[in-house]
């Protein structure tokens, strides 16, 4: 099938603002969106810049705005994005500084991630082997552990667009993952971080995070659970 691929380009050495460029690409319906970018980089314009590592939806490197929605370029097929003769557009994740073309500066995203202390905190002495959890205890956090930190959700959230300091769904999902972890004992500190003016209460249940998550995580559901936890334990 014949496609027009529109890409938002930005070279900080030459451009003062991003601009769109179009490329004609012959593609197979079963190609991934990432294959289109590879084709252009390898055969048309080697200066095209984008992030990707594993190309199999595990590393979370190639989250970008595809056809107006945040997606992982390696996890969506061309046939789901356009018909023969159609157009597919690629832009960097919104509301983040652009380094070049489709590459954003992730520093702010990971600052927020670190703010919720995304590691196990416990006073219990280390056991001989691993810290055990029953299947029931794990079920509570299982879906939240599937986050690959691609940033699609946080950069899809209108609250992030309006307030760059808003913690965002990814960081708060991680807070949920530890607050509800049976082995963790620092829920109080984490709740203090998310129960703030830049935290939970700027989630207006818009569902863009759920819509954009390439792992199908119902982010809003877990953030709501975190809201209830904050209300019942802190007030």
């Amino acid at each position: 099938m014949q496609l027009t691929v529109k890409i938002q380009r930005f070279d900080p050495e030459k451009d003062s603002a991003p601009h769109w460029e179009s490329y004609q690409v012959e593609a197979d319906p079963m190609d991934r969106a990432l294959d289109l970018l590879h084709y252009i980089k390898w055969h048309v314009d080697g200066s095209l810049t984008f992030r990707k590592s594993c190309a199999h939806g595990i590393c979370g490197s190639d989250a970008m705005q595809i056809n107006g929605e945040n997606k992982l370029a390696c996890s969506v097929l061309v046939q789901g994005l356009a018909k023969d003769g159609g157009t597919i557009s690629f832009a960097p994740l919104p509301a983040a500084p652009v380094i070049k073309d489709l590459v954003i500066d992730q520093e702010r995203f990971f600052d927020k991630y670190r703010a919720v202390m995304p590691w196990l905190i416990t006073d219990d002495p280390a056991p001989e082997k691993e810290r055990l959890q029953s299947p029931e205890q794990h079920a509570v956090i299982e879906e939240a552990t599937k986050c690959i930190l691609c940033g699609a959700c946080t950069h899809a959230c209108p609250s992030t667009w309006a307030d760059p300091d808003y913690l965002g769904p990814a960081a708060m999902l991680k807070a949920y993952r530890y607050v509800f972890d049976s082995r963790d004992s620092e829920a109080e500190e984490r709740l203090k971080v998310v129960d703030s003016k830049d935290g939970l209460w700027k989630c207006y249940t818009i569902f863009n995070c759920v819509q954009s998550c390439p792992k199908g995580i119902d982010v809003t559901r877990w953030l709501s659970a975190l809201k209830r936890k904050a209300v019942t334990t802190r007030y």
Binding site: P12, Q65, N67, W161, N208
Partner: peptide
């Protein structure tokens, strides 16, 4: 490669695809 970082992306709210949840919120 230059490491200049700029906040250059246009207003996302005008470019993002509107689905049920976002429509309800707006």
């Amino acid at each position: 490669m230059a490491t200049t970082v700029q906040d250059v992306s246009p207003k996302p709210v005008l470019r993002y695809r509107i689905r049920t949840g976002m429509f309800a919120w707006m």
